[in-house]
């Protein structure tokens, strides 16, 4: 195999590893906000790694360019989704983990459900 295929496979491997770690965090962390942290960060990074690996593996072809196009959109949409879910969960009255240190959001007007 050419060198670029090995680099591509390495990138995909790192991406898959972080995907698995993110899902493990989803299982292990105590409350919804921490789960969102683990899930969003690791899985977004992992999937971006996979797409980047495909770009290296295939080179500048239709296939590779489609993978490259996915990366910015994934980076834009995934945090917005996490942000919306966290806000919705807070408004639905899901409490923080009981070992949480502080919560300054309760003082805010918009933290209550309409």
């Amino acid at each position: 195999m050419a060198w670029n295929e090995w680099v591509g496979l390495a990138f995909i491997g790192v991406g898959v590893l972080f995907d698995a770690l993110g899902c493990l965090g989803l299982l292990r962390f105590p409350d919804i906000y921490n789960r969102l942290q683990a899930g969003t960060k690791c899985v977004t990074f992992g999937t971006c790694g996979i797409l980047l690996g495909i770009l290296f593996h295939q080179g500048i072809t239709t296939f590779g360019i489609k993978a490259l196009l996915g990366i910015p959109f994934l980076l834009l949409t995934s945090p917005v989704g996490a942000h919306a879910l966290a806000r919705g969960a807070y408004k639905a009255g899901i409490p923080l983990w009981d070992k949480s240190v502080m919560d300054e959001y309760t003082q805010s007007e918009s933290s209550r459900a309409e």
Partner: peptide, 20 residues
């Protein structure tokens, strides 16, 4: 960020003290 989260996921005691 990812190595940070990976460390927290794999750490047996889960070093968390979250807050807003």
């Amino acid at each position: 960020a990812n190595f940070d989260v990976a460390y927290r996921v794999l750490h047996p005691k889960r070093p968390l003290s979250p807050g807003i």
